[in-house]
Design a protein around this nucleic acid. Structure first.
Length: 295
DNA sequence: CGGGACTCCTGCCAGC
DNA sequence: TGCTGGCAGGAGTCCC
């Protein structure tokens, strides 16, 4: 699921419910996600006040007032759901394997239940368990191995055509692959890379270096940088894209999948030239594009 | 060093 | 209807 717009959507959904609130209880399933749960994770959350929620690339950060920060990643199928106030039952349930502080059952794919001081409950669900949580000293945040090597935020001031040209210079990989590299643009994933390349009319198969032959900015590079920002802004405005798992924290779907030009549209007519959209595999991932419009 | 293959895990869907 | 194989939004690691 989650690329930058989906994480941003989740963050904006969570922030009004979580910022300023104290965590009364934290319960974990104990089932291993991508990594084992940090030592004393739940205990260090309990009693802490959440002072700020922020995002970096596809990571979410919760700053706590006890000197710790939570780092979370949704993996492929992670979602957060908010139950404001006292709330009722969690959801229709199959098998149960852990309980929240009030003894209510969690679903089989629920892994974290937070109860906040206004009785709001926040539940993290992740069937594929590719997501993870880490807990670290807030002062050491930027040194975290997952955050240390990230490139600029594509919607931030450091993401410029010059940066993109530098990232592509001498790079033999296809531009599609280079854009998935989080050092190039932190937070891009398969969907938005395909969509941005279509908008910029650049073939995903073209070698990255060919867009910046001398390492300098070109028209294509400028077009691509703008296309990336544009598609991300529009996707955020639509609440992200829901293929299967992504949901807003109130359970509603995102809406941007309605606006895909190429992603998931193999064989359908290109909106511009009406020729069929093609699907190829690059680095083991599906790429969708129009070979007539994208050169 | 760059880049591709492989890995973690479950659910879903197409095809037989 | 029911099974099987392939595929899925991520990203670190290993190996050439």
């Amino acid at each position: 699921m989650p690329e930058l717009p989906e994480v941003e959507t989740v963050l904006r959904g969570l922030a009004p419910h979580m910022e300023g609130r104290r965590i009364v209880s934290a319960r974990i399933s104990g089932k291993r996600l991508r990594f084992p749960w940090p030592e004393n994770f739940a205990a260090r959350l309990e009693g802490a006040r959440i002072t700020a929620l922020t995002r970096r690339a596809k990571y979410m950060l919760w700053r706590l007032d006890n000197g710790f920060s939570v780092l979370s990643h949704l993996g492929m199928s992670g979602r957060f759901t908010v139950f404001p106030g006292a709330g009722g039952k969690v959801r229709a349930l199959g098998e149960f394997y852990f309980h929240d502080a009030a003894g209510r059952e969690a679903g089989p794919h629920d892994h974290l239940i937070l109860s906040l001081d206004d009785q709001t409950r926040v539940i993290y669900t992740d069937p594929r368990r590719f997501g993870f949580f880490d807990l670290l000293d807030t002062r050491e945040l930027s040194a975290h191995p997952m955050l240390r090597n990230l490139g600029p935020e594509p919607l931030g001031p450091r993401f410029t055509p010059a940066h993109l040209a530098g990232a592509f210079h001498g790079r033999r990989a296809p531009v599609k692959t280079a854009l998935l590299d989080q050092k190039t643009a932190a937070g891009l994933g398969n969907i938005y890379v395909c969509e941005a390349l279509f908008r910029a009319r650049i073939s995903p198969r073209r070698r990255a270096a060919s867009l910046a032959p001398s390492g300098g900015v070109t028209k294509r590079i400028e077009r691509l940088a703008e296309a990336i920002r544009e598609v991300l802004r529009e996707a955020i405005a639509a609440g992200g894209s829901t293929l299967r798992d992504h949901a807003r924290v109130n359970g509603e779907s995102g809406g941007f999948q309605q606006h895909f030009s190429v992603y998931g549209r193999e064989g359908e007519a290109c909106d511009v030239c009406a020729r069929p959209i093609r699907r190829i595999v690059q680095s083991g991932r599906s790429t969708f594009f129009c070979s007539h419009c994208q050169k």
